[in-house]
Design a protein around this nucleic acid. Structure first.
Lengths: 144, 144
DNA sequence: GCCGAAGGTATCCTAAGTAAACCATATGAG
DNA sequence: CTCATATGGTTTACTTAGGATACCTTCGGC
């Protein structure tokens, strides 16, 4: 009989979980469009409401407004500039720490969904996609 | 004015996207419970239907059945053993390639949601959580 | 003053996910 | 052999998250 998730302890695990860090992370980032909004800000440097709408096919104003408020409330993003004309969003430290998740998603998608990602439909490695210095900057020196 | 997502090209990007690899990856993995089912199989080595239900609070039979079929159809998992009593699920090569995503989620959750992940509520690094050899085995030598 | 763009809300509708009951097959205990 | 229990589901009904669309206010340019 299996044990509870919080008490699971495969051989590779050095600690005992009382909850699951994957589940915890997904409580916020698992909502639809959340990771793509983070991608817009952190990876594409698109900081404004209507610009995000424009570059994110399928995303609606209503949901974007919800995700921005949620990500702000949960400490992933903050207003870099809040004017009457527009607000520019940037990542907090917590948001920056979520970039490695996006990196692994880029890596996965570039390998397995090359047909919809690249015009020539050829798989690519992370090193093919980003400058090495940038990859190091984001992924840092794992496992830290 | 911003360009389309597929034509975006920040300084760090070496290639031009025609679609977004993050978006593509999330088409399957973005569905609720999908990453947690993958976690059950790939990280926790829990391979059977009712075992997954037991260790995954909130997940229902109906959704689990849907996610298993979807993950199988999309090539993330396969039946390791399909008997009359039960089926044991394992990762395909594609599923294994998704483990780095789970790793970064573990890393993120262990740092930012330590209060719900660890009994002592103290943040931990990936190196605190997994054996180094295991981290290397999964994350490999990035950026490849 | 008029127009368009930015950044939203309000209203309604659909699809995804949740809850709970039901069910067939297969042991396992007696 | 028979009964109880577990496994791995499906069915039906319900709730909620998200999609579509219309509307609205503020600002700046002309």
């Amino acid at each position: 009989m299996e044990r509870e998730a919080g008490v699971l302890q495969p051989a590779e695990l050095k600690v005992e979980f009382s909850g699951c860090p994957v589940k915890a992370s997904l409580d916020v980032l698992g909502h639809k469009w959340a990771l793509l909004v983070l991608r817009n800000i952190g990876l594409y440097h698109v900081q404004r409401f209507n610009d995000m709408l424009r570059i994110t096919p399928g995303l609606t104003k209503r949901v974007l407004a919800m995700r921005l408020r949620e990500l702000e409330r949960e400490g992933f993003i903050q207003a870099v500039e809040r004017g009457p004309r527009y607000t520019r969003w940037g990542l907090t430290e917590k948001g920056e720490d979520a970039l490695p998740i996006l990196m692994t998603l880029v890596r996965f998608g570039s390998k397995w969904y090359a047909d919809e990602v690249f015009a020539d439909k050829r798989s690519r490695t992370l090193g093919d996609v980003f400058q090495i210095s940038y990859i190091r900057q984001i992924l840092g020196r794992l496992p830290a």
